[in-house]
Amino acid sequence: MTTTQDQSSTNSGAASSEAAEKRTVRFRIQRCLGPNKPAHWEAFDVPILAGEGANVISCLQYIARRPITADGKETDPVVWDSGCLEEVCGACTMIVNGQVRQSCSCLIDNEAPNDGDVISLQPMSKFPVVRDLWVDRQRMFHNLKRAHAWTPIDGLHDRGAGPQETAKNQETRYIFSTCMTCGCCLEACPQFLLVDEPAKWDESFVGANTIGQVRLFNLHPTAKEEAGERLEVLMGPGGVSDCGNAQNCVKVCPKEIPLTEGIAAMGRATTVKAVKQFFTGE
């Protein structure tokens, strides 16, 4: 991280002194026409102006305007998913040079500072491909349903303020509540695998983000009411005990959510629940 930043600042310094310095970056993009279609690679050359703030998205926009491969072949424009472009919606997640991340916050001046540098783009591998770089992450939202990821309020009518909450509890909840369901933690997780069939989702590993959401809701005075149901899910197949503690999730999380602490906390909660169940039968 620090090294790339150092590089970028020297680059931009050089760039501003020599006026807009132009270079070409080659994009190798893993393409796929649709679900269950074979994948293939195509290369595109994109001209970059140092210091203009180019990111992977702006390069994909360039390719969309001019879908011609590096060897001059005319091809279909590349399809990708994006939204806010501020790293807060999670849509544009893909694999850039082998690492999962949001493509909007991937600056070309950092990732490919020199003329002729190559950036490879691949769709996330843990979700079915829709087309090219666009994947279908419905399973993540399905898992939120599995986990009762909501506060069971009575209704929308006015009933006064919610429960008081300590600043400490709010801080713990807040960080988990910044999870944008981007799927980085799942892509990097060796225990979370591609499951094509929705019928099998309920038996498959929920992954770090959902466990984090259970942590979030089980900390809220009202949402706690359904804590038992949530823990039940985490104790079933695909629950928290399927975690293999590779801890990649916390390393790749763009929001730096303490996912492994959430996992451990849910480990404790399920342990306590199991012991209680054993002795009280509840």
């Binding site: 690492q99 990097a188 060796p190 695998l193 293999g244 503690n245 590779a246 801890q247 390393k251 790749v252």
Partner: peptide, 17 residues
Amino acid sequence: TGRGNVGSYRFQANWRY
């Protein structure tokens, strides 16, 4: 039930996994 990926994610804990 898992597929190691130290090739892509060379973190220490991942190696241990």
